[in-house]
């Protein structure tokens, strides 16, 4: 079963395409990291998935149906975690209970208690982290099959970030739900996600299980060489050269046997950075300096 399936999905705001030609099929049971620089289309994709936006082109199916119809089975945490400033935490839980037939009141009040929050407190007085926790509580206590989180940790300090993600992983383990969470920082997601979607410039650049992605990407170092002379099976993502040495990030499904190369594994963050720098020349130079 797929939790998210898109075909040729595109969304245009006036003349600007926020998302174009997006074809994805995300299987159930994963924690999916939706990564990309600011403005890459992450929020647009998630908004399309909960029906807040309608596609300009293509189709999107969530849990096998139209996004608006699947809302009772989808938990959504919008960017900046909007809550009603004038309503208390208890009011927010009542809000969740009244608007969702599958509401788990015990789970919700447990979470509020565990977070050490006063139910009588007005949501407007919460800190950024507490607000994100409250919004996550609303999304999780709905008992969804799919949880969509838009930049949930962007406004949090590093400690709150770690706590939030830990908390999220506990909820995931308890409820066996699929999660898609977006961030413009790979480091945030590296520890929690086992599936990656990389959006760059409104297009999907990379999508797949993290272990598979890591297994098919290699960092090759060897004597200086023109990348065009490499075998076709190696897809070069980035190349950098010094006077005597060439460093390549390549994608291949078969092992690299050429003894001229020393092959090393690549981390998820480096992998993502490589794809990002591939798009802009300026990014490539920056990467070369780093190497």
């Amino acid at each position: 079963m797929t939790v998210l399936e898109t075909r040729g999905l595109g969304k245009r705001y006036r003349r600007l395409w926020a998302l174009s030609d997006c074809t994805l099929s995300v299987p159930a049971g994963h924690v999916v990291g939706l990564v990309g620089p600011n403005g890459a289309g992450k929020t647009t994709l998630l908004s399309l998935a909960v029906g807040l936006l309608a596609p300009t082109t293509g189709t999107i199916e969530v849990l096998g149906g139209r996004p608006a119809e699947r809302l009772p089975r989808v938990g959504y945490l919008a960017q900046d975690a909007p809550v009603y400033a004038g309503l208390s935490l208890a009011d927010h839980l009542a809000f969740g209970a009244r608007l969702n037939p599958g509401w788990d009141a015990a789970l919700a009040s447990d979470r509020i208690e565990r977070l050490d929050l006063d139910p009588a407190q007005k949501a407007g007085t919460l800190s950024g982290g507490q607000r994100a926790q409250l919004a996550l509580t609303l999304a999780v206590a709905k008992r969804p099959e799919l949880l969509l989180l838009d930049e949930p940790v962007a406004s949090l300090d590093p400690l709150a970030r770690r706590e939030f993600l830990q908390d999220l992983m506990e909820a995931v383990a308890e409820q066996e739900l699929s999660v898609v969470l977006s961030s413009h920082l790979v480091a945030d997601l590296e520890r929690v996600c086992d599936y990656l979607i990389l959006l760059v410039g409104s297009r999907v650049r990379l999508a797949g299980p993290v272990d598979e992605l890591l297994a098919t990407h290699h960092l090759l170092t060897g004597p200086r060489r023109d990348p065009d002379t490499l075998p076709k099976a190696l897809e070069v993502i980035t190349a950098s050269h010094t006077n005597r040495q060439t460093t390549l990030l390549v994608r291949t499904s078969s092992p690299v046997l050429d003894p001229a190369w020393s092959v090393s594994e690549v981390g998820l963050e480096d992998l993502v950075l490589a794809y990002l720098s591939q798009v802009t020349g300026r990014g490539r130079r920056r990467l070369e300096v780093q190497k």
Binding site: G51, L52, L71, D80, L99
Partner: peptide, 14 residues
């Protein structure tokens, strides 16, 4: 205030 994104993504239709 952006709360429409909260209100319109519950189980009740818009």
């Amino acid at each position: 205030t952006g709360t429409f994104r909260l209100a319109w993504t519950q189980s009740v239709s818009r």
